[in-house]
Design a protein around this nucleic acid. Structure first.
Length: 414
RNA sequence: GGACGGGUGGCCGAGCGGUUAAUGGCAGCAGACUGUAAAUCUGCCGACGAGAGUCUACGGAGGUUCGAAUCCUCCCCCUUCCA
């Protein structure tokens, strides 16, 4: 390991030229580079979720082969293992990945551990108000009752940062609470202010730990998080907070609303307020269309479980969406569907992933039906490459002012 | 030849007088999935019908009963045990 590693650095290498995304909106898409002790990330980039320190169903080697730049793991899921990770050489080394990594702070679990179904609560109108018997939040921090083991776990800003220091990711995230959609404004406001206080404490602890680090230890860099739910004034207040604290980067978190339209609106408002000299991450978002929306307003990085989870459920991402989809257009094909029986074509004819080089849809369909694990590996691998190629194309589109054409290629002209 | 236990929808398997077109599971057919409690979850799944609904169904044939997959009789198959 390098003994004199430089701290992480973000440079914006190209602000979008005067390419107009549509007649009325100027694109704020930009190219950048995040240099970390474990390597560089060309942005816009997609970050894959390796929650437990592993991408589900894809080896680190295969992630690399399929042109992955960075992966993300989770403080909450790794907290009881963190000291061992340090002994094992840190997240990047231990996992065989070796490249740039990021850890999320565990703030999302304050939310997800509280509610059974994450997706329903974060954006949909759940019929009943959320009650969270498994999570107790106080000013000090959060006690989680693990629904798996039943044990009580405690996370605070200081604890989260200490754990993230042990895990050793290049990029770490301040401890916050991801606010649900279905809470009132008062809750969102109080939660946001508490998250701000927590983020300050995160920063204090982070700076202490960085200052104490021995020569050989790799420096880390911290992201602040913007909260405020769907409320414009709260988002602004939160942006002001993040802008004024000494974070390396900034992430947009919390509930982004109940619909794609609302999400665009919330992110749009937020991006108008955030400073432009820091790398900006959009937490938890990763549909193809959402990525274009985000890139257009200047988001640099995204992370999402969608590509890898979808793969395990039989969904393979395809350019232009599913030609067989009956209802709403969707961005993937469902290889479980019987139309793929005996289909000799690869998932995508022009895809260069290892799966598409060798395996047919018909074979993968068969593997899914027989519940062979290999199905997960093959589809996940394709989806990983798909996202990486998408982002590479997006970067190319920004560089050559052809982003609208790139968007059309990946989303179809519908 | 005798005794015992069985034969239920594509398969396995509950039910043992009415609320049963018939619990479950598997298989099948779809859908969902956005800082991973997720190799998960949801719906459909006898036939015809868009639907209301109408048929046909628990080995076969009779019978008892207002009413039978469930009780009785005979027959046909199968398991195990005894000769």
């Amino acid at each position: 390991m390098s003994s004199n590693a430089q701290p992480s650095l973000f440079t914006c290498t190209q602000q979008s030229p005067d390419s107009h995304f549509n007649s009325s909106t100027k694109s704020k898409a930009r190219l950048g580079c995040i240099r970390t002790p474990h390597g560089e990330i060309q942005t816009p980039a997609f970050i894959f979720c390796a929650t437990n320190g592993a991408i589900k169903a894809v080896t680190a080697e295969d992630m690399r082969v399929e042109r992955t730049q960075i992966i993300l793991s989770n403080t909450f899921h790794l907290m009881s293992f963190a000291s061992h990770i340090k002994k094992l050489g840190g997240l990047a080394h231990m996992s065989g990945w070796g490249g740039p990594t990021l850890t999320d702070s565990g703030g999302y679990q304050i939310f997800s551990m509280g509610y059974g179904s994450v997706a329903e609560e974060i954006k949909c109108n759940r019929k009943f108000p959320g009650k969270r018997p498994n999570v107790k939040i106080s000013e000090d921090g959060v006690v989680f009752k693990s629904c798996i083991s039943g044990e009580s776990l405690f996370l605070s800003p200081e604890r989260s940062i200490e754990i993230q220091e042990e895990i050793g990711a290049d990029l770490i995230v301040a401890f916050d609470e991801c606010t649900p959609y279905n809470v009132d404004r008062t809750y969102t406001e109080h939660s946001m202010r508490r998250s701000h206080r927590w983020e300050k404490r995160s920063l204090v602890r982070f700076n202490e730990l960085e200052a104490q680090k021995p020569e050989y230890a790799l420096p880390q860099a911290m992201y602040g998080i913007v909260q405020g739910g769907v409320y414009e004034d709260l988002r602004k207040e939160s942006c002001d907070f993040v802008n004024n604290e000494l974070f390396f980067g900034q992430a947009i978190g919390g509930s982004l609303g109940a619909s794609t339209e609302q999400m665009r609106e919330v992110i749009g408002i937020t991006m108008q307020q955030l400073r432009a000299d820091r790398p900006t991450h959009l937490l938890g978002i990763g549909r193809i269309s959402d990525i274009f929306d985000g890139v257009e307003i200047g988001i640099d990085t995204f992370d999402c479980v969608h590509p890898t989870r979808l793969a395990r459920h039989g969904g393979a991402l395809v350019k232009g969406g599913d030609p067989h989809a009956k209802g709403d257009a969707r961005e993937h094909i469902n290889l479980k569907n019987s139309v793929y029986v005996g289909d000799e074509h690869p998932i995508e004819q022009d895809c260069l992933c290892q799966t598409c080089q060798k395996y047919s849809r018909g074979y993968i369909h068969h593997l899914i039906k027989k519940r062979e694990i290999l199905a997960h590996l093959l589809i996940a691998r394709h989806n990983v490459r798909f996202m990486n190629d998408l982002m590479a194309d997006v970067r190319e589109g920004i560089a050559t002012a052809t982003l609208p054409q790139v968007k059309n290629k990946w989303l179809g002209s519908k």
